[in-house]
C-alpha cells in the first residue's frame, strides 16, 4: 500500500513514517503541505493519505476538500492527524469527508486502531 504523509514538520513526518513502518506499511512518501501534496497525489497512485491540518500554503482541510472534489481522487481514504481540537473543526472535517481524525499528541495504538477501522469499513 502506497501512503502519502503530509505535515509541515519534518520530525512529525518521520514519527508517522516510523509508526507506519512498525504497522507494516513501508511504502510511504512525504510532502510538507497541500500544494506539494496535490501533484504527488494526482500522479502517484496513492492508496492512503495521512495529513496534518495547519500548514502553510494549503491546509490539510483544503487538501481534503480538493481531493474529494477531484473525480480521480475522490475515493482516496484520508486520515487527519492534527493538533486542531475545536469541535467545529472536527465536524467540518467529517462533513468534508475525512475517514478518520486523530488529535495530537497521539499514540501508536490510536494510529493502528484508526487505520484498521478505515480499511475495515472500506473492505466491507
Amino acid at each position: 500500500m502506497k501512503i502519502l504523509i503530509v505535515d509541515d514538520f519534518a520530525t512529525m513526518r518521520r514519527i508517522i513514517k516510523n509508526l507506519l513502518r512498525d504497522l507494516g506499511f513501508t511504502n510511504t512518501h512525504e510532502a510538507d503541505d497541500g500544494l506539494t501534496a496535490l501533484p504527488l497525489l494526482q500522479t502517484g497512485n496513492f492508496d492512503f493519505l495521512v495529513t496534518d491540518w495547519n500548514m502553510p500554503g494549503m491546509t490539510g482541510y483544503d487538501l481534503l476538500k480538493t481531493v474529494r472534489a477531484d473525480p480521480k481522487l475522490k475515493d482516496l481514504p484520508i486520515l487527519m492527524v492534527t493538533a486542531e481540537a475545536k469541535r467545529e473543526q472536527i465536524v467540518a472535517a467529517a462533513q468534508a469527508g475525512v475517514n478518520g481524525y486523530i488529535v495530537k499528541p497521539f499514540t501508536a495504538a490510536v494510529l493502528k486502531e484508526k487505520i484498521d477501522k478505515i480499511f475495515e469499513r472500506i473492505n466491507k
Binding site: N54, A83, E84, A85, K86
Partner: peptide, 9 residues
Amino acid sequence: EHPVPEGPI
C-alpha cells in the same frame, strides 16, 4: 464553513 486553524489548545 471554513474553520480557522488554531494550533495546539
